[in-house]
Each structure stands twice: as structure tokens, then as C-alpha cells.
Amino acid sequence: MTEDSIVPLGSLRPGDRAWVLSLAADGAEEARLLDLGFTPGSAVECVFGSPMGDPIAYRVRGALVALRRAQSEKIMVTRRVQQPHRGG
């Protein structure tokens, strides 16, 4: 597995995969992201964007979850190029 530097989730393009490193959100927003499985160490994949480019749908723990750019900018990730052992 090769890794890039640390980038916000919002900078991924459809098809890109990454690991979650940290969340910069707080309060109810952080709580909801944690509930949905955006915890540090989780695998995410950028799947597709909406017609106007925002929000964007991500695959996390098997589920498809749409986040606005304002949220996805608060999730720091590190890119992964190859499939990890567990699959997407």
C-alpha cells in the first residue's frame, strides 16, 4: 500500500479510496459522523457527486452516505492506492 500525504476527504475524486485519520467537526455534527462510522481508521471511498457537485456520496462501512463539502473538508484522510485486505 502506498500512501499520499494527509488531505481532506473533500479533495477525493470519484473512485478514490482513503483511510480516515481524524475529524475536525464537533458537537452534533461530530456525533452523527461517528455514528455513521467515520471513525479514525475506517476505510472510505468517494463514489459519486450530485449534479451540482455538492454534496458527494461516500461509501463508509458498506453504506452510502452523502456529505456536503463543508463536512467532508473537516475529515482528514490519507489516500490508499491499492485495495486493502478487507475490500471496500
Binding site: L36, V65, R68
Partner: peptide
């Protein structure tokens, strides 16, 4: 904040 699950 807007977080929306897209169910299958």
C-alpha cells in the same frame, strides 16, 4: 449540517 444516507 447535512448528512444523508442513500439506502440501496
Amino acid at each position: 449540517s447535512f448528512v444523508l444516507e442513500l439506502p440501496p
